[in-house]
Design a binder for these strands. Structure first.
Lengths: 246, 246
DNA sequence: AAGTGGTCTAGACCACAAC
DNA sequence: TTGTGGTCTAGACCACTTT
């Protein structure tokens, strides 16, 4: 990073730092210059450097750790999720990519809430399994997912948790159907939740694509409510209505 | 807003201000207390108040105007856009709601770029119309939209610009088809662009739902590329795959 | 002229991490 | 102990809006 004649302001310094990261191709392990060092280098107050770094952090360019310093964030090209209503989420990814992982992080059995009961056409209070999973691609977590499904359809669900692959895997084995069916889908953009930030280790101001679906089978009717929170810088949703273009 | 014994920090002050707005049901025209006034009131430095207001601004709770002050932002419940591949965007909204408006803000005729050419299966450089429109509901702009379509399909397009309703309106009149067809759709979450912020007068950190579609007709093949940037706090995307649930 | 938000300086203290 | 980021104080100057 070079010094200059005129003292730059916060935005200019942020641009310089961003350029410095890009030009030197710095990765997640390269420590960036400290606030004090840059303040001295640019002949400005430390608060100006803090504002510059805050700007970069809000854009997802860097992250900071108290006592350690600032570090660059490597941006990757987003995955394209090609949605089909007759196949599960994990199945689409694992079909094409071997670097895909779906990991169960926690589960519990509890009564269904009113909003969920409406969506799944259940009586309020019915016990449902709630699964939280994270999805990784190339070792990086790109999504946090929440599955809700009534216990009555899978009373023996817990036996599958040791070697968990996906909800659809379990359902397919249990009900012997060849493909799940997505009945409806709802998509919103949102600010990441505390959980999202924790599991995906992401910047606060990177938006989340939140996709919520209801799945059914001919035997059971509606049986699963699935919500995925995916990082917008790592994930895009696609859908084709004509079969001819693949 | 009440004072307190212990001097609160920035986050606590932000919470107090948010509560104050909600409890007094303040609208866009009610000026909030100035930085200096709050600094005095809470016995903290003006910079702490600035941090608190910055936090609220980033959450879309308030906005500020230099020389005037801070003002609350009224949050509205998001519109649910019920997508169908056989009907246009405007048509879905205007069918149910009379408060819906689609306004042409600018247009130009220019050569197609390579990326667009691929999407629309056109030779590079082919002249295309580019329309920028804004969509209002109840007087508030919730989306900025970009249409791209080849001039060859609508050589007389400009005559429609004085009394513009929607691209589909023009196409339906011209080609006499009863419904447009959406071939593919791609959805991402994103940070608002400068244009988005300008037209929708929105906070920087409210995510955008960006939906991009290709439309075709039997007569022409692919003929329109349509992109909508919609505020996530005012817009949600929905889709049903089963006809029975309406 | 007075009040507002926007930006910056200079300096202090804290909690945490590394040595 | 030293260096790091996180938070806060106190005060200055600017550009813009209102009175």
């Amino acid at each position: 990073m070079e010094e200059n004649k005129k003292t730059p302001n916060a935005v200019e310094i942020a641009t310089r730092i961003r350029k410095y990261i890009r030009q030197n191709n710095l990765g997640e392990n390269s420590k960036l210059p400290s606030e004090n060092k840059l303040a001295e280098m640019f002949h400005v107050d430390r608060n100006v450097i803090r504002a510059a770094y805050a700007h970069l952090r809000s854009q997802g360019d860097v992250y900071s750790v108290k006592g350690k310093g600032y570090f660059p964030i490597k941006k990757t090209r987003p995955l394209i999720y090609q949605h089909r209503s007759d196949i599960g989420f994990s199945e689409i990814f694992s079909k094409n990519r071997s670097e895909y992982e779906n990991v169960l992080v926690s589960w519990r059995l509890s009564p269904v809430t009113e909003a969920e009961a409406n969506r799944l056409h259940l009586p309020v209070g019915e016990p449902v399994y709630r699964l939280k999973t994270i999805r990784r691609m190339d070792g990086k977590v790109f999504a946090v997912c929440y599955s809700t499904l009534p216990q009555k359809f899978v009373p023996d669900m817990e036996q599958y948790f040791d070697e968990y692959k996906s909800v659809n895997e379990i359902l397919m084995e249990k009900y012997g159907y060849s493909h799940p069916v997505c009945d409806s889908i709802s998509i919103v953009a949102a600010v990441p939740s505390v959980d999202d930030i924790k599991y995906m280790q992401m910047a606060e101001h990177i938006p989340i694509l939140s996709i919520s679906c209801c799945f059914s089978t001919p035997q059971t009717g509606l049986l699963e409510h699935f919500v995925i929170h995916a990082r917008s810088d790592m994930f895009a949703f696609n859908m084709n209505f004509k079969q001819e273009e693949n």
